[in-house]
Nucleic acid binder design. Structure first.
Lengths: 181, 181, 181, 181
DNA sequence: TTTT
DNA sequence: TTTT
C-alpha cells in the first residue's frame, strides 16, 4: 500500500441505535453504526445554552463488524478511528446522492460491558488506510478470531432502509484483527 | 465550551482547485476547499495496480478562510484538521440532500510557496470543537492579522455552483487566529 | 501563533493515581497526571499472552488542571489530547535528565461520574499548539468557569517527589476554557 | 491484538540529521530519526517574537526503517504517526535514565525527492498499536518491497552514541509494509 | 478537480 | 540537529 496523503477520522461518541449487521453473499459481515458527537456552548449573543449534535455514519467490515454486532448497542460509548469515504448512489427517485461515511479501522469500547472488563480495542488487520493484502492473510482471518464464532445467518439481515441506500460495497482490501479480548 | 465526544478529522492532501472565497453580508470570509487524498495498492486478485482518490469538501471561516485564499491554490499540498459536519439542504429540484464537510480549525501549508519559506500553521482561535467565545475576542480579530489586509470586496464572490448548494451558515463560534507568519 | 509542524498526542487511558495538583506562586494550578495505556497480544514464538503497559506523564495548566483535580481520580478513564514536550532537568545527584510529558490541551472524562452524566470535554482556551494570546483573555479566565470556584489553597500542595523532579514551568501561553459542563 | 486505550502520536516536522540506520544480529533494520517541530508566537508581556523547537526521538523498524534510510535525509519534512514508548536504561555512569520515543507505524514524506514525485506513505504492516502477527507475514516481508534491496551490511552500522544509549530492542510484533512506491 |  |  502506498498512500499520498492522510485521511484520518477520530470519533468518540455514542451509538444512536443498535448496530445494523448484514452479510454479503460472500458471507462477509458489514456493520453500520450511527454515532453521535455533541457540543454545547453558550450563545454569544443571547447567552443561552445551546447544543448541537452531529451524527456520523460509520461502517465496519468483517471481524470488526462482527465485534460491533456482538458488543455494541444503542447508547454504547465508543472510540472509532477510520477514514472518510464518500459514495455516490441513486435513490429510487432517480436522483443522485452522496453519502459520506467513516470506514472504521480501529474501534474501542469505552463502556463497561456485561461480562466485566471495560472493553478492549480492535483494529482491522489491514493498514489504517491500507490495501494490498496478500491472500495469506485472509486465511489468518478465517481461522482466527472469537472462538466458537457462529456462522453468519443464512438469511442475511437487512437494515430497514427507509431512505434508499447505496448498494453495499465491500472493499477487498479491508481486513480485521482476529484476536479476541 | 463543553463537548461530549470527540469529532476530529486530519487530512493531508492536495487542492483540486483554487480555494473558493466568498463573504457573508457581514463581511465574514468563507473558504471552500476541495482536497484530494489518494491511495494506491495492488489488486489482490489480479495483481494490477489500483488507485482510489477521495475528495473532501472542507470549509474555513474568517481569518483561516482569508489565509487559504491568499496562500493556497490548485495543487497545493496542505494539512488540515477539523471536525465533521453534515448539513441538510434542498436542491432546486426540491430534493433534500446532505453534504458532509470538514470544518477546518487548523491548517498548515506543506508546499514551498512563492515568497520563499515553506508555510506555517494556522489555527482558528476558537477551540477545535469549541464555541462560547466572548465578544472581546472578535475585537482581537478585527485588529489583528495579516497587515494591510484588503477589505473584502463589496461584490461578494460567488462560487459558480452548478449543483445547487446549501446556504452558507457561519457559526458564530468559530474564530481564527490573527497572527501572521 | 504560527507553528511549523504538527505535534499532537492522543491518549485514552486510565489514571494510575489521583491527579497531583499544585499551585505556582502566581496561584496558577498545575496538574500532573499519570495515564496508562496498555496492549495485549500473543507472543509470536510461544503463543503466550503478553501485555505491556505504557505510562504517560501528562500535565495540565490553569482551568484544565483544576478540572482534573475536581473530576479525575485514580482509575478514571480519560481522553487527553496535547503536545509532546521534553524538559531537561538536573537531579540532586547533579546528573542531567530529560523528561518527556504531554502538555494537555483537551481533556474528556470517559467514566461515569458521581453527579450523574458521563463527563464532558474541556479544552485549553489557547490553540492546541498555540501561543500568543492577548491579555484580554486572562480576564475572561478570571471571571469564568466553574461557579463558586474556591480560591487556590494558600499552602500550595506539593507532590511528594521521590525522584527529584524538574522545577515547574508554566508557559504563559497556555489558557484554558472557562465554560463549565 | 487487543489494546485498552489509545496511544497515538502525530508529527509533522523536519529531520535534524540524516536517519541513523543500524541492524540487529538478526539483520533487522532499525532507524532512529530526530524530528523537529517548532512554534513561534509573540511574547504576551514584551511583544517580542519567540520560538520554541521541540525535538522528537523516533524509531522505525524493518521495512519502514529501510525506507527512512533510503528516502529521508537531514532537513526532510515528514509526517509520522506512531505510539509513545518510554524505555529505561542505564548509562555508563550507572545512573538510570528514561527515554521516550515515538515508535513509528506510518510515515509519509512531504518533501519533493530527487527522483521526482513527492513521496508516498508507508505503514508498518502490523496494526498501529498492534501485535500478534502470524509468521506467514514475515515471509511476505522477505519477498517484498523495494526491488534490488541491498542486503544489510555485514558490519552493522553503529550510531556514534556520545551519550550512552539503551540497547536496541526490536519488538517482534512490529511489521512493515512491503509495497514500494 | 489534485498529487505521484 | 531541522525548518521558516
Amino acid at each position: 500500500m502506498a498512500s499520498r496523503g492522510i485521511n484520518k477520522v477520530i470519533l468518540i461518541g455514542n451509538l444512536g441505535a443498535d448496530p445494523e449487521i448484514r452479510y454479503t453473499q460472500n458471507n462477509t459481515a458489514i456493520a453500520n453504526l450511527s454515532i453521535a458527537t455533541s457540543e454545547s456552548w453558550k450563545d454569544k449573543q443571547t447567552g443561552e445554552p445551546r447544543e448541537q449534535t452531529e451524527w456520523h455514519k460509520c461502517v465496519a467490515y468483517r471481524r470488526l463488524a462482527e465485534i460491533a454486532g456482538e458488543y455494541l448497542k444503542k447508547g454504547s460509548k465508543v472510540y472509532v478511528e477510520g477514514r472518510l469515504q464518500t459514495r455516490k448512489w441513486q435513490g429510487q427517485d432517480g436522483v443522485e446522492r452522496y453519502t459520506t461515511e467513516i470506514v472504521i479501522n480501529e474501534m474501542q469500547m469505552l463502556d463497561g460491558r456485561p461480562g466485566g472488563g471495560q472493553g478492549g480495542g480492535y483494529q482491522s488487520q489491514g493498514q489504517s488506510q491500507g490495501q494490498g493484502q496478500t491472500s495469506g492473510q485472509s486465511g489468518q482471518y478465517q481461522q482466527g478470531g472469537q472462538q466458537q464464532r457462529q456462522p453468519a445467518p443464512q438469511q442475511p439481515q437487512q437494515r430497514p432502509a427507509q431512505r434508499p441506500e447505496p448498494e453495499p460495497f465491500v472493499p477487498d482490501q479491508e481486513f480485521d484483527d482476529d484476536i479476541p479480548f
